[in-house]
Design a protein around this nucleic acid. Structure first.
Lengths: 352, 352
DNA sequence: CTGAAAGCGCTTACAG
DNA sequence: CTGAAAGCGCTTACAG
């Protein structure tokens, strides 16, 4: 079925058929109806190749992330590149920007400048969410769609959020930890000293879930900065002092330091450790038994989907069916970690 | 960059440029080289829309699965439909066939008939692998590519296998079970009485991994048929007799019956249960604590990727970069199960 | 071996 | 409000 065939059948021109399909205003109501019916009756599907060819437009999409942890953002970047490769033949350019995690202002300045650089759409992983709300709203208002990844800013005028639900993410950590602790014992929680909403939500989810397990107690909550300074010393010393602890919940990026402390305190297999994200180093600690499980949130897809959503919107005006697209919570153990580490290679096959 | 611009620059026709790009034989070696250089120098990327439009070909792809367990194949079907929707506008038709699990011959007959029905490519989930080798070879030889999903037939002449590694799948189950049993206790293994390679491999992987845990013993291996008849009675009676058992490994599709027996024997939270696949019912049992964890193998992607791989091959001659594409081993707990259950909805956004 | 030309299905100024 | 026509970038018979 083509527009020509439809047109011939109705005795009109294919121009008019096309106008109806694309909702152009200047079509007589009667004609419109007639065409719509014929379209439906013949089960018409537009040929995307032809459409794309004639509507040729070149889009520029910017993706902005920050610098730490490097291995995490590398996986996001793989997803971005994968989408880029897939869309290159359709005239899409994607640029990837990394700002310093210690200089949140960099993101704000970048956000101010990107529209001038001719970008048609922006995906951003907020370093300091509150700092960006206003600028994101301004950008959206000027008709440049924004997708937020990794940590949501619900109050910002965004096309969509792509990332995990941090409450659920904390609850899952707790469920796994509780099961590996055989539903009883004492937990140490490691978290941030500064207010970072995502991490706070994880701990909230963890505590909520913990209320289901009456025989597990939180012995201590230790707080650190975003660079996880002092984690090793603290965990090592606590494990030496408090022999009741059989579970550690690492709510932020401090798995590697924690694992090393567990090894040095000779507590492998005596204390269960659950945290987040996956790197080669973390995988090594898992194989040694120093990390029980780690939880990931589809880093590859966060990058991949962000670009795809923006492109769909730019090209066809397709809005994501929901303003929140939660990534899966991936429970990773020693025996399935390799599949998640090599994901980029895995998926590259398809986006060539 | 377009073929016209390249042609103009070299003072030749775009027809010749196109011939070089598509490796047509009748081009003078000198011209070919000149064009190839210009192509590389200008970083030429062919416009896929234009190419697809002019090379318009309609492909018919068949996907063959069998009937049980229904919920599993439903998820595969979602993936197939998703790929189908994505490719419809490019002139691809996909048909989905379900054969009776108790009549393996149906697959063989179907495989004989599909080429006559004009199918250009076939994906099949073998019910009885050995039965199909010859016919798959015959089909491949007649230039119809075949992708095998779910259970591999390494000896068959296939384009690619999409599915899990069953040895790893058993090892992961063991790791999770061992951790939830606190590295000691007694295990009951449920498996099949008839030889089904995939299930045997799972048990092999499980046993291999178990050798790392010296304080866990296999008390008993119980065998059943593929329909899991008698599982409930057997598990219920074993749990009543043997109070040392604190772990059950369900190596085939019998999680629901096992979970119910655990509940009725009043052993929730006293015995850890690990098995495979995810349905609404299994999710309910997880929430009740009767199932510790279940392992999935990206059923959606098995269907989705199979179709995509075949289409890539038909359209562009792209071979999968490896003849084996392992799906991830997904560790699923009560707290992340919903993400895997609703996957189809989740992904549908993108394939509209 | 190569050029000129037709045509894939669609959209959109341009006339009227 | 609608038709006739141009053109998106590419491939491929058809001549030569």
């Amino acid at each position: 079925m083509t527009t020509s065939e439809i047109a011939k059948k109705l005795g009109i021109s294919r121009g008019t058929v096309s106008r109806v399909i694309n909702n152009h205003p200047n079509v007589k109501e009667e004609t419109r109806k007639k065409v719509l019916e014929a379209l439906k009756a013949s089960n018409y599907i537009p040929n995307e190749a032809a459409r794309a060819l004639v509507m040729k437009r070149n889009f520029k999409i910017a993706v902005v992330v920050f610098s730490e942890p490097k291995f995490f953002w590398k996986q996001v970047e793989f997803g971005v590149n994968s989408a880029h490769n897939e869309l290159k033949p359709h005239g899409v350019k994607v640029e990837y920007f990394v700002t310093d995690i210690l200089k949140p202002d960099e993101q704000l300045e970048l956000l101010r400048d990107l529209p001038n650089q001719g970008f048609d759409a922006i995906a951003i992983a907020p370093n300091n969410p509150l700092l960006l709300v206003e600028q994101i709203d301004a950008i959206s208002t000027s008709n440049i769609p924004v997708v937020i990844i990794n940590v949501d800013i619900p109050t910002a005028n965004r096309l969509c959020y792509v990332g995990c639900n941090y409450i659920h993410s904390g609850a899952l950590a707790c469920e796994i930890l509780a099961k590996c602790m055989n539903y009883n014992g004492h937990v140490l929680i490691l978290t941030l000293q500064d207010q970072v909403i995502a991490i706070e939500q994880r701990v909230t989810g963890f505590r909520q879930e913990l209320s289901n397990y009456r025989n597990i107690y939180i012995d201590q909550v230790s707080r650190f900065n975003r660079l996880a300074e002092g984690v090793y010393d603290e965990v090592y010393s606590i494990l030496n002092k408090n022999h009741e602890i059989n579970g550690i919940y690492v709510s932020f990026g401090a798995l590697e330091q924690t694992a090393q402390a567990v090894i040095d305190a000779n507590m492998v297999n005596k204390v269960s450790v659950v945290g987040y994200d996956l790197s080669e180093t973390i995988y090594d600690y898992m194989k040694k038994g120093a990390i029980t499980a780690t939880i990931c949130h589809e880093p590859f897809n966060q990058g991949y989907f962000a670009v795809k959503i923006l492109h769909n919107y730019l090209r066809s005006g397709i809005m994501p069916s929901s303003s929140i697209m939660y990534t899966k919570l991936e429970a990773i153990f020693s025996r399935n970690a390799s599949y998640y580490l090599n994901e980029q290679k895995h998926l590259e096959l398809f986006h060539l």
